[in-house]
Write a protein that binds this DNA or RNA. Structure first.
Lengths: 205, 205, 205, 205
DNA sequence: AATGAATGAGCCTTCATTCAT
DNA sequence: AATGAATGAAGGCTCATTCAT
């Protein structure tokens, strides 16, 4: 009966603390001390488990990314038609928990952080391409590959742009409107795409 | 004949230097010394003219915003139809000079900075609402007010989202594709809107 | 039949580990963790057995001193004439094992350490006086007491100086030349001493 | 009439302060704060002028080396015969000012420091070879090149060994005896060398 | 007998900011 | 108008040491 090591617990606590601390600090210039305080441990311990501030920040980023992925996967599992799968991705990406103040703050900080940290930049790239391919997959069943890629690009950018504005809390459209905007984007561009290809199809005849 | 004071020159130089420095530093943690070095003056002088680092950063942000506004105004002046005015805003917002490395870095930093600085947050709000209203204006001539607002919200978010991805240089769509995506967004949503209202119109009959 | 305690083994291992660690670190700033790692135990154990870092360092110093003493004693045992006993001391002091990289590093560190630790300083004094008296003993049989003391002082300093230069690996004479230099020092000063006292003896007549 | 910059003054003060601080701390683990306090300035200033602790330490080492070189050069200038020049080097190397407590402490620290700093190691090498060549020069006029090199090696090591013992204040011979020991070393080995070559000369006949 | 967990103290370093000149 | 000189405050990080298990 091995006593379970506390390491995973501490690591998780510290990651949570980092996210909370980032939020409280206005997402700028969090210190290790602040994070450690939030976690109820000494700054030295944070170093012990993560090796340094940067790695703790990156770990927190990875944590958020993982959570998002899990909820996307979960949502996808319950979708049946391609169109439903698209909505699943949109809903998961703009889900209420993504709009927790702390989460939003953290994402914004990570965007910025990616400018100077290779690890962070890599994680952001992973996020970008994952979002795009999650959208492109079902889209390819509803439009040509070319169209699907473009629509995916647009929808992904739209999601991020809406999120960004929300994060900057400046008269951003509320969450539900945000979702609606993306859904409409999908519908309208798909419709236009269909009309065009229909036209082309007719022309081709 | 008063000798023209050097103050405006110094201020402008420092603002430019700040933007350059932000870029070079990977947009994180610029120091006053670095900025001053870029401007070829002493750090003390930057203080003298701006009163502090924060104010210099905000001034730089304001500078970028002003430049953007000028080019939007200029583009609008040459547009004639409402649809052309929409394109003018899109083109100015995604113009080549907006994609200068330095400019992109600076914008990303400002987004982040807005999280902890009220002045910066205010400027960002100004930017957001200006972009939206620049789009909503002509849109209102092409769709219902309600629709126009929604489309403007979407288009603005799309522009920012595309810009953001570009800034994070991670397989972002190239500038021209970006513009094209926004144009299509406008076209497709307008078309859908027209169809719907047409339907409604017919129904209303 | 009491099971032999592991304590002596652990202590010995830790002392060896300390010496190795000092060498690897360039002899500066060894940490307890490093030492413990070398010994394959936890840092806490090193504390448990030695009570603190200082005491472990001093113990390591004492260990080296003991080894040196043993090999001097052993060499002396096989010498017959006074001159041979002098050579025995020289050979043992400049023996190949004294020039192991790790040993040299450790000695240099100990010299330095003696500046701030009383215990270490005491050990160094022991070493100094032991070396001197080991040389002075046989010398007294070959020259006046006065002369013997002086020659012993010189020879001891010469040995240390050669060792020091060797440790700083900077074009130092190789080990064999070092031994030869000390032997010659003994021979030449003894010869000069004999000539002088001979002269004096003759004059006295 | 340019106002003389204070930089050289501060640098000199800090170097002196470093040497004093090293002594006071028992030559182990001096902190920048201590050094700065001794110099009456803030630790930040020490960094400003030297860029870091290591560089300040190395600068202090270089300072001592320079002082020694100056006094050797000065002594050499007043020597006429080769033998006098040898004595000049010995006297300068073992001059009273070299035995200031602070100076001795600093030298010992530098020996140790050279184990982990390349710059320091290089300086030490410079010292070693300079001392040897200062001795070898005049010696070559009094003995064969081969002999001269060996004697120089021995004398240099003897000087360092004596200094080392003195620094460790453990029954070391007093300064004057130290000088005498080196002088005798020179005389006796030269005499022996002469006798041998004389013998050889005779044999050769 | 041994260690994982945890920390307090302290150090080097950076940087915005001030001020006399 | 401009700057060299100087610093206070703070942050990341290291490490010897303690203690419960």
């Amino acid at each position: 009966m091995a006593r379970p090591s506390v390491e995973p617990i501490r690591r998780r606590d510290l990651v949570h603390a980092a996210i909370r601390a980032i939020h409280q600090r206005g997402s700028l210039d969090v210190t290790m001390s602040e994070i450690a305080n939030f976690a109820g441990v000494s700054p030295a311990l944070a170093h012990h488990y993560f090796g340094g501030k940067d790695q703790l920040i990156v770990a927190s980023m990875r944590h958020l990314l993982t959570e998002l992925r899990i909820s996307v996967v979960f949502a996808l599992r319950q979708a049946e038609t391609p169109r439903e799968r698209i909505s699943a991705v949109i809903n998961a990406s703009l889900a209420p928990e993504q709009f927790d103040d702390e989460t939003v703050s953290a994402w914004l900080t990570f965007y910025h952080y990616a400018q100077s940290s290779d690890d962070a930049a890599r994680l952001l790239t992973v996020y970008f391409s994952r979002l795009k391919s999650n959208l492109a997959g079902p889209l390819r069943q509803l439009a040509s590959t070319n169209e699907a890629m473009m629509i995916a690009d647009g929808a992904a950018a739209l999601i991020d742009g809406l999120y960004l504005r929300y994060g900057s809390r400046s008269g951003a459209p509320p969450r539900n409107l945000a979702r609606q905007l993306v859904e409409r984007y999908i519908d309208d561009t798909l419709a236009a795409s269909a009309a065009t290809s229909g036209l082309q199809a007719r022309r081709d005849t």
